[in-house]
């Protein structure tokens, strides 16, 4: 006999299905008038601090076809490296930046976010995490949401010291690097096969 740990079990995940847009981006699929604006549609407000960028990319399946029915969510720190979250206790984040974005991919599997470049964030055991954006992808055929991160191609030195990138086999690190081109950062996500994106168990 032994005492009970008295813990509940996490509710199991189920796929978001092909009609995920009804729930997450109702205005995109024509359910208008219920909510004036889809959640996560606007990350920045006037007066936001930092460098404005657009993150754009495609989600592709194992056959290289666009995953045109997925929803992509991102979560990131502000330009100073602070999260706009009640769980952020280091200081107040930029009030003109939500840090949370949500986008339904289009017919070509393309998503895009107008945001700011995040600052570095403290990592475990005194390490510093290079500027990065957390991604979460759901769709028909995805049984449990996929977590990944996008880092920045113009942060080579910081990326080298990043405690998460250091856990990834070097050959696969490029799948986590967004390619900076002016104000746009290109970041494709490959669910399976050649150059498969690294996904995380966090």
């Amino acid at each position: 006999m032994v005492q009970h740990l008295d813990r509940l079990r996490e509710t199991p995940s189920q796929t978001a299905g092909p009609y995920v847009h009804i729930g997450l981006t109702p205005n995109v699929c024509g359910i208008t008038g219920v909510t004036p604006e889809d959640l996560g549609a606007r990350m920045v407000a006037d007066g936001v601090r930092g460098e404005r960028i657009t993150i754009r990319g495609r989600v592709l399946d194992g056959a290289g076809r666009p995953v045109n029915d997925c929803v992509v969510e991102i979560w990131q720190a502000d330009a100073a490296g602070l999260y706009n979250s009640p769980m952020e206790h280091r200081g107040a984040a930029d009030p003109n930046f939500t840090g949370f974005g949500r986008c339904a991919a289009d017919e070509e599997g393309v998503f895009s976010f107008d945001t700011v470049k995040p600052g570095p964030v403290p990592g475990p055991r005194g390490a510093t995490m290079a500027p990065h954006v957390s991604f979460w992808i759901v769709a028909r055929g995805i049984n449990i949401g996929l977590h990944t991160r996008m880092y920045f191609s113009d942060e080579e030195a910081a990326n080298r010291d990043d405690p998460v990138l250091r856990r990834v086999v070097p050959a696969r690190v490029p799948t986590l690097i967004g390619r900076r081109e002016g104000d746009t950062v290109h970041f494709d996500i490959r669910l399976q096969g050649e150059d498969e994106t690294v996904f995380f168990d966090v």
Binding site: G62, A77, N84, Q192, D201
Partner: peptide
């Protein structure tokens, strides 16, 4: 569930303990 066949990552997930980026979230 056939839709999962081409949408399932083939590589193992890379595990790490949640950092500030996962411990925080939007409200």
């Amino acid at each position: 569930y056939k839709s999962s066949i081409l949408r399932a990552p083939g590589e193992a997930l890379v595990s790490f303990e949640s950092t500030l980026s996962e411990k925080t979230g939007p409200a």
